[in-house]
């Protein structure tokens, strides 16, 4: 368990009927690592994250979350990860504070510790003023902050973030980046899917580029640029995913 990486995906394949969404994908997020998960629309990023989080069935391949096999011990695996989905899963008629209290109970976080972490995350993401208002009255950015706080409340060994910067203001973006770096410094893993290549270049230790469900490249941004004619990560991304968009 101690030596197990936060996330290991081996030969993951997922289909929607005839459409091959993820094709024999393998990747690993090491302890203390922030990995950027890049790919054009429809590349299979969200599907991969949803399979890892247990929202979609694991059809073929193996996923291990901090040593817990998702197929064999799904509850243990789920306890060891936090997911920030592309569209938040919130209860409109709870307040952010009540919602976090509920999520803490789901993850068996002791009340006192949950109160402590909730307060911390609420202040960190500047949700104090909105903490007592119903979520249905919150803006898109506020909801995203609540969703991030809920995913990190139980301090999981692995955080999966699907386009986490959507709707966030610059201060919240900074707060999230700092939080992810702190988590990495504590030896926890982060897999972040994003279209913002500059963010990936600056934030991530490594990036994995997928296209049409297949891994096209993986490595540190510097390693991906080394020996190539392209000058930036964006150029590399465009070169690797330059063929026509899938029809999905």
């Amino acid at each position: 368990m101690e030596s197990a990486p936060p996330l290991r995906i081996e030969s993951l394949t997922h289909r929607y009927g005839d459409l091959l969404a993820v094709d024999d994908l393998s990747l690993e997020v090491g302890a203390g690592e922030i990995v950027g998960f890049l790919g054009p629309n429809g590349a299979g990023k969200t599907t991969t994250l949803r399979v890892c989080a247990g929202l979609l069935a694991l059809e073929k391949g193996r996923v291990t979350i901090a040593g817990a096999d998702l197929a064999a011990t799904p509850l243990l695996a789920r306890a060891r990860l936090g997911l920030v989905p592309d569209e938040p899963f919130l209860y409109e008629r709870l307040t952010p504070a009540e919602f976090l209290e509920f999520v803490a109970a789901l993850y068996d976080v002791p009340e006192s510790l949950a109160a402590l972490r909730s307060s911390e995350l609420i202040e960190r993401f500047e949700l104090v003023a909105a903490a007592g208002e119903l979520i249905e009255t919150c803006s898109r950015g506020m909801r995203q902050k609540v969703s991030i706080a809920a995913a990190l409340l139980h301090d999981p060994p692995l955080a999966l973030l699907d386009e986490p910067l959507t709707g966030l203001d610059p201060r919240a973006v900074r707060a999230l980046k700092d939080l992810l770096r702190e988590r990495a410094a504590r030896g926890l893993g982060v897999l972040v899917s994003t279209h913002l290549l500059e963010v990936a270049e600056r934030l991530c230790d490594r990036v994995v580029i997928i296209h049409r469900g297949k891994k096209r490249a993986a490595g540190t941004p510097a390693a991906l640029l080394a020996g190539r004619a392209e000058a930036t990560l964006e150029d590399v991304f465009l070169a690797l995913t330059g063929d026509a968009e899938p029809a999905s």
Binding site: T95, A97, A115, S118, A131, G132, E133, L134
Partner: peptide
Amino acid sequence: TPVARPARRRAKRPLP
């Protein structure tokens, strides 16, 4: 336009 609707009570809990 969102309608501001305060919750019944603020769920802010006292710290330990």
